[in-house]
Design a protein around this nucleic acid. Structure first.
Length: 470
RNA sequence: GCUCCCAUCGUCUAGCGGUUAGGACGCGGCCCUCUCAAGGCUGAAACACCGGUUCGAGUCCGGUUGGGAGCGCCA
C-alpha cells in the first residue's frame, strides 16, 4: 500500500470553526509536496475535542478543500474514532515505566500555576507525582497519565523551514497523555496517528513549533521514526495583526463568494511564503513541478487583497470563454433570488467575452459589468448615466438612430456613422459615444460601445436608445 | 513573567560575503483611446538599530528594538 520511500503528508485540522486562509495554505503546501514527490496527501480530522467539534465545521473543511481542488488520498481519518488505540499506547508507556500516574486534581494544578505566576516563575507542571510512590495515591481517585520526559539535555528539532530549533528539556514539563476520564490528549493522538498513518513529513503552522519538541520526546520514548518537520510562519491580516473576522479569517468559501477563482487562491497562497525566483504567475501544474520545501520563507506574511485582485484578473483573462460562462451561470444561480443565464444572454456573453474579461477583477465585478447583456428591455440609467443623458445628448441619440437606419448593424459601421455624426457637429467621438453608452447600458462605463451594440443586436439596441432620444 | 520564532521598498518577495540591492502588487507620469479597463514605456519607494567577524557585509555572530507564537487533563 505504502510506496517505500515516497513521502506521506497530511493535513490535520480540528473541526472547530471555518477553514480559513491559513489552514488552506497549510493544506496547499502539504498537497503540493505530495503531488510533486509522487507521495500521498492524507486528511485527518482532529475531532477529539467533543465540546467544540461540529459536523458543520467538518463539512466546511471538506467543501473548502474540494473547492480548492486539493484532493486527498485514502479515507478521511477521524481522530476520535481511534481513541482506543491512543489509550493502548498510553498504557504501554505506563507499563514500560516511561509514563506515570498523576493524581493531582485540576484545582490543585490551578493553584500551582497561580503560585508560579505570582512568583514570576515559568508556568509548568512541577512533577509532583513523577517519583512518588503510587501507594500514596488516594484510593480509587482518578488519575491522568503523564509522560516521564527527560529533564536534562535538550530536544532539537531540525525544521526544514526554521532550521535548528533547540529546547532545553528542563523547560518542558511532563505532559498529560491520557486524561483522568480516560480520553487521550491531542499530543498523544497526533503522535500515534502520524505513526499509524506512516506520515513522513509534518508541514503545519508555526503555532505548533513548541509542540514539536514535546511530540519528539514522545516519539523517542516510543522508539518510533522521527518525521521531517516544517513549521510555516503564520499569515497575518492586512494590518499586520492576527487574522480576524473582519479581514481574512474568512472561510475559504467566502473567497469563492467574493468572486475569486480557485486557481487564483492556489497561486496567491503559494506565493505567500514560497518563491521560485521572480516568478509570480504560477499555475498549479507548474507549481506541482516546482514546489519544494527549501524555498519556504521564514517570516510571516500579510494578506494583500490588491494583489489577490490582480492575480484573479489575470486568471479571469486567461480562462476559457465557455468555462467562464459556466462559472458566471453558477454565480447567478447562487444569488438571492437566483438568476438564470438564458441562452440568449449566454451567447451575448460569449460574444462580448474578450472585452468583458479585461475589465473584471472578480467574478462579481464581471457580472456587474455584464449585467446589461443579461436581460432585454430599457435600462434604468444610474446616477452618472442620467447626467450624461441631457436633452442635447438625446438629440444626438436620435440623430444616430436616423443615421444608422438601413445600414448594416456591425461595430465598424456603427462607429463610422458615429464619427460622421461627430464630425458634422464638430464634436469628438466621445461626445456621441457616451450618450449611446448611457442609453444602451445605463452606465457611463462599459466595453467599447459599438461592439456592445453589435452584440445586443439592432432591435434591442434601437429600443434602448430610442427611449433616451429626442 | 518564561520559552521559541521572525525582521529587504506601503505589501508579497529575489538575494545564499564583492549587486547601480532585482521582480510583482499598489502609487505617480507618458503613450494608446468613445468611457472604463487591459497593454506598452517610465518614475518614486527598502536592507529596523548597535556592536563585532572579515580586505569587504542585506548576506555570518552577539545584543537592542519591534512583531508573532506557545506556556491546559484545548487542538
Amino acid at each position: 500500500m505504502t510506496e517505500i520511500g515516497k513521502p506521506v503528508l497530511r493535513f490535520a485540522p480540528s473541526p472547530t470553526g471555518m477553514l480559513h486562509i491559513g489552514g488552506a495554505r497549510t493544506a496547499l503546501f502539504n498537497w503540493l509536496y505530495a503531488r510533486h514527490s509522487g507521495g500521498r496527501f492524507l486528511l485527518r480530522i482532529e475531532d477529539t475535542d467533543r465540546e467544540r467539534s461540529t459536523p458543520e465545521a467538518v463539512s466546511a473543511i471538506i467543501n473548502g478543500l474540494s473547492w480548492l481542488d486539493l484532493t486527498w488520498d485514502n479515507e478521511i481519518v477521524y481522530q476520535f474514532s481511534r481513541a482506543g488505540r491512543h489509550r493502548e499506547i498510553a498504557e504501554k508507556l505506563l507499563a514500560e515505566g516511561k509514563a506515570y500516574r498523576c493524581y493531582a486534581t485540576p484545582a490543585e494544578l490551578e493553584e500551582m500555576r497561580a503560585a508560579q505566576r505570582a512568583a514570576g516563575k515559568p508556568i509548568r507542571y512541577d512533577g509532583r507525582w513523577r517519583d512518588r510512590d503510587p501507594a500514596e495515591a488516594p484510593p480509587g481517585a482518578p488519575f491522568a497519565i503523564r509522560l516521564k520526559a527527560p529533564q536534562t539535555g535538550e530536544t532539537i528539532i531540525h525544521d526544514v523551514v526554521q532550521g535548528e530549533v533547540r529546547f532545553a528539556n528542563e523547560q518542558l514539563d511532563d505532559m498529560v497523555l491520557l486524561r483522568s476520564d480516560g480520553n487521550p490528549t491531542y499530543m498523544l493522538a497526533v503522535v500515534v496517528d502520524d505513526f499509524d498513518m506512516a506520515i513522513t513529513h509534518i508541514i503545519r503552522g508555526d503555532d505548533h513549533l513548541n509542540n514539536a519538541a514535546r511530540q519528539l520526546q514522545l516519539i523517542r520514548a516510543l522508539g518510533w521514526p522521527e518525521p521531517v518537520y516544517g513549521h510555516l510562519p503564520l499569515i497575518h491580516g492586512p494590518d499586520g495583526a492576527k487574522l480576524s473576522k473582519r479581514h481574512g479569517a474568512l472561510a475559504v468559501e467566502a473567497y469563492r463568494d467574493m468572486g475569486y477563482l480557485p486557481e487564483t487562491m492556489r497561486n496567491y497562497l503559494l506565493r505567500l511564503g514560497w518563491s521560485h525566483g521572480n516568478e509570480e504567475i504560477i499555475p498549479t501544474t507548474q507549481a506541482i513541478e516546482w514546489f519544494n520545501l527549501d524555498n519556504i520563507g521564514k517570516s510571516p506574511a500579510r494578506l494583500d487583497f490588491k494583489k489577490l485582485d490582480n492575480l484573479n484578473a489575470h486568471y479571469i483573462r486567461s480562462m476559457d470563454d465557455k468555462v467562464l460562462a459556466d462559472e458566471i451561470a453558477a454565480f447567478l444561480a447562487r444569488e438571492t433570488p437566483p438568476r438564470r443565464l438564458t441562452d440568449k444572454a449566454r451567447s451575448r456573453l460569449i460574444a462580448a467575452m474578450g472585452s468583458l474579461k479585461d475589465r473584471a477583477k472578480t467574478i462579481l465585478e464581471f457580472i456587474a459589468g455584464a449585467d446589461f447583456l443579461f436581460t432585454d428591455g430599457v435600462r434604468q440609467p444610474d446616477e452618472a448615466a442620467a447626467k450624461v443623458l441631457t436633452d442635447e445628448a438625446k438629440r444626438l441619440n436620435g440623430e444616430f438612430l436616423a443615421a444608422t437606419e438601413g445600414a448594416p448593424w456591425s461595430a465598424p459601421v456603427l462607429e463610422e456613422k458615429a464619427r460622421e455624426l461627430a464630425n458634422a457637429k464638430g464634436l469628438k467621438l466621445g461626445q456621441v459615444a457616451q450618450p449611446l453608452r448611457a442609453a444602451a447600458t445605463g452606465r457611463t462605463t462599459s466595453p467599447p460601445i459599438f461592439a456592445m451594440l453589435e452584440v445586443l443586436g439592432r432591435e434591442e439596441s434601437v429600443a434602448r436608445i430610442k427611449s433616451f432620444s429626442a
